[in-house]
C-alpha cells in the first residue's frame, strides 16, 4: 500500500500550458482577482471532458472575465458587451459539432446582455455559460452591477446601493436553462467538477461563479484582502446544496446555494432544428 501511495504522489503535475497561449500572458487581472482561479478550474474541466482544442469555441463579451478567450488555445471570439450569447448562438447553430463555452460577467450577462442571456436559456441551445460574478464592474473601475449587494459601496453608489440583486441561477432556471449551478473560486475543486458536469450536459448550462474583485469591490467596501473577501462571500456566504437540508435554518439564512441547483432533460435547439430540416426537405 505504501508503494502505491508514493506512486500517486509522483503523478506528473497538470500541464496547463497545453491549453494556454503562453505568449499572450501575463493576463490583465489584478493581484487577488478570482478569475485566474476560475480559469484553472475551467481548464481542468475541459481536460477531463476529453474534448479537443479544435472542438471548443470560446466566446465572450466585454469585461475582465471576457478577456479569458485571449489566453486559451481554442477557437476564440471576444465580442461586444452583453452580446456573447447571440454570437455564440450563431456559431453553434452554424456548426453544431463545436462545443461552445461562453465566458461572461455579472454586468455583461445580467445587465446589458440580459435579453440575450434569457433567450439563450429559453432555446436550450447546447452551450455552457459561465457567469463570473464579483458584484462590480471591474474593467470600468468599480460601478455597481446587478449583483452588487444592497447597501454596498461602488463608484456609482457612494451612498450605498439601493437596487435589489438579480439571482443569476433563479433567472437562468426560470428562463429555461436545463442545467443551473453555482460555484465559487474558493471551492475551486468543486467548481472544476461542476463545470465538467455543465460541459457534459446537453442543452444550455449556466454556472454562476462567485469570485472576488479586491481592487474595486474590496477597496470600496473596506474588505482588506482577497482572502477576506473569499471567506466572507464564498466560504461563509454559500452553503452546499448537499448540506443544506442537514443544517439548522440560522446557518442557511442569507446564504447562496452552491452546487448543481437544477438539472432536467429537454429537447436541445440544434437537434430540434435538424428535425425541422428533415421535415422541410420532405415538403
Amino acid at each position: 500500500m505504501a508503494v502505491q501511495t508514493a506512486a500517486k504522489k509522483e503523478r506528473a503535475p497538470f500541464d496547463y500550458d497545453r491549453y494556454l497561449r503562453p505568449k499572450k500572458l501575463p493576463h490583465i487581472w489584478c493581484p487577488g482577482c478570482g478569475h485566474g482561479i476560475v480559469l484553472k478550474s475551467l481548464i481542468r474541466a475541459i481536460d477531463a471532458s476529453g474534448l479537443t482544442k479544435d472542438q471548443i469555441c470560446m466566446v465572450s463579451g466585454i469585461g475582465c472575465s471576457s478577456r479569458t478567450p485571449g489566453y486559451v488555445d481554442f477557437n476564440t471570439l471576444h465580442t461586444l458587451h452583453g452580446r456573447s450569447f447571440a454570437y455564440a448562438t450563431g456559431v453553434k447553430l452554424a456548426k453544431p459539432e463545436l462545443k461552445v463555452i461562453v465566458i461572461s460577467g455579472d454586468g455583461d450577462a445580467l445587465a446589458i446582455g440580459g435579453n440575450h442571456f434569457i433567450h439563450t436559456c429559453r432555446r436550450n441551445i447546447d452551450m455552457t455559460i459561465l457567469v463570473y460574478s464579483n458584484f462590480i464592474y471591474g474593467m470600468t473601475g468599480g460601478q455597481y452591477s446587478p449583483t452588487t449587494p444592497q447597501g454596498a459601496i461602488a463608484t456609482t453608489s457612494r451612498f450605498g446601493n439601493i437596487e435589489p440583486v438579480f439571482d443569476c441561477c433563479d433567472l437562468a432556471k426560470a428562463a429555461g436553462a436545463t442545467f443551473v449551478a453555482r460555484g465559487t473560486s474558493y471551492h475551486c475543486q468543486d467548481l472544476e467538477k461542476t463545470i465538467l458536469e455543465a460541459i457534459r450536459h446537453k442543452g444550455t448550462s449556466v454556472v454562476e461563479i462567485i469570485d472576488q474583485c479586491p481592487t474595486y469591490y474590496g477597496r470600496l467596501n473596506k474588505l482588506r484582502s482577497a482572502t477576506e473577501m473569499m471567506e466572507k462571500f464564498e466560504k461563509n456566504g454559500t452553503v452546499s446544496v448537499k448540506q443544506v437540508d442537514k443544517l439548522p435554518p440560522e446557518k442557511v439564512e442569507g446564504k447562496l446555494l452552491r452546487g448543481i441547483l437544477h438539472r432536467v432533460e429537454r429537447p436541445e435547439y440544434c437537434e430540434e432544428y435538424d428535425k425541422l430540416i428533415q421535415d422541410a426537405k420532405g415538403k
Binding site: L80, R83, F85, A86, T89, G90, N115, H116, Y273, K281
Partner: peptide, 25 residues
C-alpha cells in the same frame, strides 16, 4: 431549411446581427 440552411428569429435586432457574425466565423 429545405436546403439544409439555418434560420433563426432572434430576441432582438442586436442579437440578429451578432448571430450572423458568429455564423460567418
Amino acid at each position: 431549411p429545405k436546403t439544409g440552411g439555418k434560420f433563426i428569429q432572434m430576441e432582438d435586432e442586436i442579437g440578429a446581427i451578432s448571430a450572423i457574425i458568429g455564423a460567418s466565423l
